[in-house]
Design a protein around this nucleic acid. Structure first.
Lengths: 252, 252
DNA sequence: GAGTGGTCTAGACCACGAA
DNA sequence: TCGTGGTCTAGACCACTCG
C-alpha cells in the first residue's frame, strides 16, 4: 500500500510518518512482539527517503514503543507510549538548604549469605554471597547526617575495593569503573516511613518522626541487578527533587 | 584548525566528535553562554559531513549542555552534563498492590486570591486569582483513598471546565486539551510528612503516621507555571515508583 | 549470502532570526 | 539579505544476524 505524505511546508514528514506508525501499531496492524516493515519497505510504502523513515522510527524508539536491532529489524514493544519523559534533569538527589555536596561515610562492609526476604528482594538464590556496605551520608557542613544507607552488591562485583572512609562518588560509579560495566537502568521506589528508635538514633532524629526511604536498583545492559541501595532520610532534612522534560512531537 | 578523525571501523565519527566537543567545552574553548561554531564550520574543521556534525551536536543537546536555535546557532548551556537519564519510564505514579487504575474524586473548587506564603510558592504576585481544586484519589476498588490532592491552576487557565465528579485523566492533561498548551517541564519535590489529625481523617489513616507528599509544578514551553499540584499519600498505601534509562554514548 | 539496521557523504530547499 | 539550524533526497559502505 502506498500512502501519500504531504509536501514540505507543513508538519515534517517524519512526524507525520511517526504518527501514522503509532496509529497502525495501536490498531493492531503491527502487533506487539512482531516486527515493523524494514526501513526500505517503509521507504517504498510512503515514498520517502530512508532518512525520513529512520527519523520517524526514532520517535517510536524514544517513546519506548519500538526497539531496533541490527540484522534483525524493528520490534514492536508496546502499543502505547511507555516513556513519559525524555530527559531527567538535576540529578537524583537534591537537597534542601542548598547543601549539594555530600559524602558517604562508610561504617562497615561484610560478605553476606542472603536468605529469605532479602534474597527475594534481591531476586537472588538463597545462599548467594553478596557484599553488604553501610554508612551515613553527610553534607559538607558535616552536622547531622542526611541519610543512612545500606547497599548490597551482586556476587560478581563483591571484590570491589576502595570502599572506606569518606566517599564522594556514588557506589555504582565505583563499580562501573572497576569492573568496566555500564549501569543502563535504575528502578527507584520511594516511600514514607516512621523512624524507629534505632534509626532515629543513627540519624540524630526524633523517634516517631517521618523518614523518606529510597530504594534503588541498578541494572546493567543485560538487566542483571548490580546493586541495591536503600537509604532513609529524616524528613525535615531532605527533600527529593527531580525535573523532567517532555519532548514529544508525535501527536497521538 | 583541522583535526583528523579516524576512518570508519572504530568508534563512530559522530561520537568521537561529540567527545571532542565536550572536552573543548569543559576546557573553556567554547565558554558557557557562547555559541559553538556553525555546523558548516565544524564540517570544515573536522573534515566530516554535516550529518556527522549534527549527530554529534545532538549528543550534546541530549546531555543538556547545548541548545540549538534556528537562525542563531548552537549555544553552550553548561560545561558538564545536566541530564542524567534520557528516558523516564513507567509513568509518574505506580502503586503497590497492583492497583494501577485510579480516579480523582473532585470535592470542590474555588477561585482564590493568592496571598503570602501561597503566593510565594506559586511565584505569583499577591492578588492574582488562581483556581483551587481539591479532592481525593481512589483505586478502582474504591476502598480507602490513596491520596488527597490540592491543585492550583494559573489565572490564564482558571476557566477550565469539566472538573467535577470522578476524573480519570490528569488535570494537566485536561488543561493541555482545553487550552491547546503543551506541558514541557515538570518539577517534582518529594518529602515525607507526619499526618496531622485532619489529614489522617480525610485519608482514613492513623494520626501521627507517615505520609508521602508530592509537589509537582507543570510548566509550559515558555517556562510559565501552569499548575501546581500537591498530593499527600498514606505511607502504607502508596509507593512512588519510577524507572530511568541511561543512554549515554559519549565517553567523558 | 542475503538482508538488516548503523553510519556517512554530498548535495538540496526551507523557515526563521539578525543585521 | 544573508546565514542559521531543520528537513530531506539518493546514494554508499559497514557489521551483524540468520538461514
Amino acid at each position: 500500500m502506498t500512502v501519500k505524505i504531504e509536501a514540505p511546508g507543513g508538519r515534517p514528514r517524519y512526524l507525520q510518518l511517526a504518527t501514522t506508525l503509532v496509529h497502525e501499531i495501536r490498531t493492531g496492524r503491527y502487533p506487539v512482539g512482531g516486527l515493523l516493515p524494514t526501513e526500505f519497505e517503509l521507504c517504498d510504502q510512503f515514498g520517502v527517503s530512508r532518512f525520513t523513515v529512520r527519523e520517524a522510527v526514532k520517535q517510536l524508539v524514544q517513546m519506548g514503543m519500538v526497539t531496533r536491532q541490527p540484522g534483525v529489524g524493528s520490534r514492536v514493544l508496546a502499543a502505547a507510549p511507555v516513556t513519559q519523559y525524555t530527559q531527567t534533569m538535576s540529578g537524583i538527589t537534591d537537597l534542601r538548604q542548598y547543601a549539594y555536596e555530600t559524602s558517604l561515610e562508610i561504617e562497615g562492609q561484610a560478605l553476606l549469605e542472603v536468605q529469605g526476604e532479602l534474597a527475594d528482594t534481591l531476586d537472588a538464590s538463597p545462599g548467594e554471597t553478596w557484599l553488604h556496605v553501610w554508612g551515613l551520608r553527610y553534607t559538607e557542613a558535616h552536622d547531622a547526617p542526611i541519610c543512612m544507607t545500606d547497599a548490597y552488591v551482586a556476587p560478581a562485583f563483591r571484590s570491589v575495593s576502595g570502599l572506606s572512609g569518606r566517599m564522594t562518588r556514588a557506589l555504582y560509579a565505583v563499580l562501573e569503573e572497576q569492573f568496566d560495566l555500564q549501569i543502563k537502568t535504575v528502578h527507584q521506589d520511594i516511600r514514607a516511613v516512621v523512624l524507629d528508635k534505632a534509626a532515629a538514633r543513627r540519624l540524630d532524629a526524633k523517634p516517631g518522626s517521618a523518614g523518606l526511604r529510597l530504594e534503588r536498583r541498578y541494572l546493567d545492559a543485560r538487566d542483571e541487578l548490580v546493586e541495591l541501595a536503600i537509604s532513609v532520610h529524616p524528613a525535615d532534612r531532605f527533600t527529593y527533587r527531580e525535573s523532567f522534560r517532555r519532548d514529544w512531537q508525535v501527536s497521538m
